[in-house]
Design a protein around this nucleic acid. Structure first.
Lengths: 169, 169
DNA sequence: TTAAAGTTTCAGAAATAATTGAAATATATA
DNA sequence: TATATATTTCAATTATTTCTGAAACTTTAA
């Protein structure tokens, strides 16, 4: 295995992983590329490396910056912008978890709260009972996950895992 | 809020959540429907409720059964099949987590293991160093997550959360 | 200013993914 | 076994998402 093969494998696989998790392939690939790059890269370098258009790179970088896992960097005496990825794996994971919670889980929690009080004399009693039970349990679960995530966000990897592993032995 | 409104909101939102996580909308909606249904439903009832084709229902149910969160049920004196969802929220969450780990995380771990040994005298030293460092850290993180997930799978919700919350206070 | 260098936007094209519906297959009952 | 009922499959269609490339916009520096 030489460097180029390894790089391509990683970028490829990172793209597949992204797709499976609802993140578009190009975004994930760009992130993979930046993640293993010792230096920040320019738009032109990313285009060249992944063989994609300027517009795509521009939009994908914006999305990655919105996730909070890619940053703009400036180089002395260079007019153009460079981009670098967060490299701390724990920081990456918590950033993504927080952002997904904000974007995708919160709306569900709001929905669950909205449907907590069903006033309905018409509907089948068993149906009302079941949706009430289920939505209450989902809400409880969501709140518990929230709590754990909050702690997550303020801790570091080594602390988290070591304590968890000790606890679970 | 009456029952029908609540049901529709839940199914709708459950579909959106699914899409954001790479699960197709219809599959998620069917799951939502079964989750709040006090009785197992037939294919015809699902078609009617969600206004989708027989083929779509059939394929989606198979996918949900592959996830391990929907089961076939038989009713006495009924020729056709009925379907029901796992209703325990903790069981749901761990099933999905295990399955995603198997399907999506394992290939990444394999890739990371493959690229652990780069033999390359040609390539830029800094690049090789960076990809080595990054892939080692990702692998370490993945292994730690694996370990936690394994414990997950054999535990129950109340134990997990109560210990975690105690721990994190 | 103005020109050059760089970045963003977005309408249309291309690629992917989801869905339908009808034929093929399977299963139960008389 | 034949027939009616139920389920699965898959080619064709439809819908959605992603990507491109050129124009519009922004920034820097002469």
């Amino acid at each position: 295995m030489n460097y180029t093969e390894a790089k391509n494998e990683l970028i490829q696989e990172w793209g597949i992983l992204g797709s499976a998790w609802g993140i578009n392939k190009t975004e994930a690939q760009i992130h993979g590329l930046l993640m293993i790059s010792p230096e920040p890269l320019s738009v032109a370098e990313i285009m060249e490396e992944l063989q994609i258009s300027r517009g795509n790179v521009s939009m994908s970088l914006r999305a990655l910056m919105d996730w909070g896992i890619v940053y703009k960097k400036f180089k002395l005496n260079e007019r153009k912008e460079f981009f670098a990825s967060e490299k701390d794996v724990w920081a990456l994971a918590t950033k993504v978890a927080e952002e997904r919670q904000k974007r995708e889980l919160k709306p569900v929690v709001k929905m669950l709260e909205r449907i907590q009080e069903i006033k309905d004399t018409e509907a089948d009693k068993a149906h009302v009972k079941e949706i009430n039970k289920m939505s209450k349990e989902l809400l409880k679960f969501a709140h518990q996950c929230d709590k754990v995530l909050k702690r997550f966000a303020n801790s570091d990897s080594s602390w988290f895992f070591s304590t968890l592993v000790k606890l679970m032995r």
